[in-house]
Simulated assay, not measured.
Amino acid sequence: MKFHTRKWVKPEDLNPNQTLFGGKLLAWIDEEAALYGAIQLENKKVVTKFMSEINFLSSARQGDIVEIGIEPIKFGRTSLVLNCEVRNKMTHETIITVERIVLVNIGENGKPAPHGKTQIEYVKDRLENN
C-alpha cells in the first residue's frame, strides 16, 4: 500500500476524549480517496458511493502524524474500488482500516459514466507517453 498524505493531529481535530475525532479522520479519508480517484480516472467529478465497515484499531493524539494509504482493488465500468489504511507515521501502528471504498466516475450529465480505465496509471507515465 502506498501512503500518499500525512496529517498532523491538531487541537481542533480532537474529540472530548482528547483523541482524534473519528469524523475528522473519515473526512480526511474521503478526501484522499476522491483525490486518488480523480487522478486515476482523469476526472475531477468523482463521488463516493460506498464505504464498507470501518475498523478503528487504535487512536491518535494531539501532535501525532498520521498517514493515509490508498490502494486500488478493482476497476469497474464506471467505478473504482479502493482499500484504505491510516497509520501513525512514527510507530506504523494502524489506526483505522476501510476494506472497500467505492467511487463512481460522473459524466457531464451528472450521471455515472464509463471511465475506460482497467489498471493503475501513474502521472509520470502519462507525461512520458504524450
Rank of each mutant, 00 (worst) to 15 (best):
A38C: 08
H92E: 15
S52W: 12
Q18Y: 10
E31K: 09
V46I: 13
G23I: 03
G110Q: 01
F75Y: 13
T48K: 05
Y122Q: 14
I68P: 00
V46Y: 01
M1W: 06
M1I: 04
I65S: 07
E99C: 05
E108C: 11
K89Y: 14
R61G: 07
T97C: 03
N55K: 14
K45D: 12
M1H: 15
D30I: 00
A38P: 09
G37D: 03
V98M: 04
F3I: 10
H115A: 05
F75E: 03
D30H: 04
S79P: 12
P16H: 11
V46N: 03
D30S: 01
Q62M: 02
N129Y: 12
R61P: 04
S58G: 10
E53A: 05
K111P: 03
M1R: 12
G63H: 08
C84G: 01
T91W: 14
T94P: 02
D13I: 05
L80F: 08
E108V: 14
I29H: 01
G37T: 07
P112D: 14
L25N: 02
I73A: 04
F3V: 09
K45N: 15
A27Y: 01
R100K: 15
W8E: 11
T5N: 04
S59A: 11
N109S: 13
L26E: 09
Q119Y: 08
T78W: 03
G110R: 05
S79Q: 04
G76S: 11
G110H: 09
L82D: 08
K10L: 09
G110E: 07
K74Y: 10
G23L: 03
K45I: 00
F50D: 07
I106P: 02
N109I: 07
L82F: 14
I70A: 01
K2E: 12
L25A: 09
G110I: 14
Y36N: 07
I120E: 04
L57V: 01
V86F: 09
V123P: 02
V46A: 07
N17P: 03
T91K: 12
K49C: 00
G63A: 10
T5M: 03
L41C: 11
G22H: 00
H4D: 00
L127P: 11
M90W: 10
F21R: 08
